[in-house]
Design a protein around this nucleic acid. Structure first.
Lengths: 338, 338
DNA sequence: AGGAAAAATGGTAGCGCTAGCATTATTCAT
DNA sequence: ATGAATAATGCTAGCGCTACCATTTTTCCT
């Protein structure tokens, strides 16, 4: 008889069971429902596990039980400060219930998102969390066919088949417009860059311009310096404002752009907020430290992570439904720059 | 006959095979070695896959082949700017060879690292990359017993059983000390915070102080404002320097601390670099934009990711060995703040 | 045309684990 | 002591896939 198949070389449940003089199924229970195993057996198993350095093979377990205790989270970026709180809050919460987090970034590309979703589904996750409501047809099809709960975060639109955990991005624009108008600014510009780091910057601009025009009768200037680093984009925006001289407030796609603007203004001698106010989006840690400190719209990043985790756990039956599916709210943190 | 077992509800290889009038094994080959399948069969399978929305179950595949095409990467933080380049470079490189990245942060805690390593090993990854040379005994045992290649990154010490991809942190200190001395600074302080975001800040301080004393006969002041946000720590360091008035250069544990220092100095009226020079570590994107712009020691973050990926791929036999295991080098980016 | 090599395909068994019962040991009320 | 409840444990049969070999079909050479 030839020895078929190479084994992985790692200790298996069977080996642990043998060493602990019990059956594999009891060892399995030891890991999954310890309270169903007697104290004496538990100790023997614990000793065997330690001696063999046994680590359960989660792939095998997931295969056997048709449910891996893993939840996939896809965000546009895992490094952008704006998403870090969401990741942290989500991860904390699901790991408390024994779920592991599979994290990937779509790098602001819908194609890359499709790739990542496919890879995730390959692991048969218990649930999937994706960013926003916009996906490729392929992604949509996979999500629809995957028989796992799906939650969409960082946006809020009522016409979707999945639970939404986020805020309405046009609401942000109205908040910013009202705030700047109330402070007396009338010649307002919006600065963004294609790699600003969020998918909704252009959408926010549209509603910002529409709102200023509709509610306050003001035109808006769009400053878009092209594909450069956000911080450089902020600098270029300030340079343009100094050239044209007809702008008294700048709303930026995010705090990186806004930081670049504040720092460049300082370097170039434009007084903020006297000559031009700057309002950011994201409320990154740097906002408070800048000189002058940066006013910013703060998205509910942490709440998104928490609520999304709760929603997922509800769908999985781990948590009782709360059923309060509302849009979350952004707040405005006024500081010295406006 | 009772129907045992719930199936996952997803399409399986068998279903695809049936629809494509071929055998499961051929469909398996279609995904893993397409060149071994004839063009005609390939097209039939592709159609069946599309129709069923089939996504291969990677857990089952990994189990059957005893090698999941997944590589685990454990870093102290996935949000700290300093690690972002490493993640990016590593991910790019391994994904090009068909490996997926399993990413986790140990949050600067060795206990958390042990937890994460255990979870990763549960997925039977093809390889594991961990940060630094310091681990709990439990982690060490798991790494030693796991029959997968292990690589350690972001540090360089010759006395370890695993390949190292990183730089010598004491070298950074010598570089910084030489640079500041050469520029004529003699009353030098070092600022750090326990949550500064890297495991080696204290080690760098020790060598920094030792080197200044040994090579230049200078004493070093340590400023450690306690567990506050790095940016706030920078501000507190500047406040202390203004109080005492006997410091002319500040080396910071990282660029967040240094940014806080530069911004606070500006706010409080301390001229940089005339009254006090500031040198950072990490060369974060903000360094260049600050006013005055921040001099910083740039670690080879991207190189670490690339070389670690190469080392891993070599161990897996995917790449031919290069065998040049040397420490990588940090460079110094001098700007206005020194 | 005949034979050998190469390409394409398929059957069988099993990777390591757990669901669904079935069975045995223990506890408790009567 | 007896039966009924409960706790603890074990057996069998797969989860969906691929390694290993065997077989069939095609291609190529003389």
């Amino acid at each position: 008889m030839t020895r078929k198949r190479r084994s992985s070389g790692r200790a298996t449940l069977d080996q642990v069971a043998e060493l602990a003089s019990t059956s594999p199924i009891t060892v399995s229970r030891y890991f999954n429902r310890p309270q169903h195993v007697s104290e004496a057996t538990r100790q023997r198993i614990a000793a065997a596990v330690a001696e063999l350095g046994y680590v359960p093979n989660l792939a095998a377990g997931g295969l056997a039980s048709a449910q891996a205790r893993v939840i996939g989270l896809v965000l546009p970026s895992i490094s952008a400060p704006i998403y870090v709180d969401t990741i942290q809050a989500f991860s904390d919460r699901v790991s408390r219930y024994g779920y592991q987090l599979l994290l990937a970034s779509s790098e602001f590309s819908l194609e890359k998102e499709e790739e990542v979703v496919r890879a995730f589904l390959g692991w048969a996750p218990a649930a999937l969390v994706v960013t926003g409501c916009q996906h490729t047809p392929g992604t949509e099809q996979m999500l629809a066919r995957a028989s796992v709960p799906v939650v969409e975060v960082w946006d809020y639109r009522p016409d979707r088949p999945y639970p939404q955990v986020g805020f309405a991005h046009d609401e942000v624009s109205r908040l910013a417009a009202a705030f700047l108008h109330e402070r007396g600014y009338r010649r307002i510009a919006y600065a963004q860059t294609p790699i600003a780091g969020d998918l909704w910057a252009a959408l926010r601009y549209e509603e910002f311009a529409a709102c200023l025009l509709r509610d306050y009768g003001l035109a808006t200037r769009l400053i878009e310096p092209g594909a450069v680093h956000p911080i450089a984009a902020g600098r270029l925006a300030i340079e343009e404002i100094m050239r044209s001289g007809d702008i008294d407030a700048l709303f930026c796609a995010n705090d990186n752009v806004a930081s670049g603007a504040v720092l460049a203004a300082q370097r170039l001698g434009l007084r903020i907020p006297q000559q031009c106010a700057v309002l950011g989006f994201g409320d990154f840690p740097i906002a408070e430290a800048l000189f002058p400190s940066l006013s910013s719209v703060r998205p509910p990043a942490r709440d998104i992570g928490e609520v999304a985790a709760d929603r997922v756990l509800e769908e999985l039956g781990t948590l009782n439904p709360d059923a309060s599916t509302k849009a979350l709210a952004c707040t405005l943190a006024p500081r010295e720059s406006t």
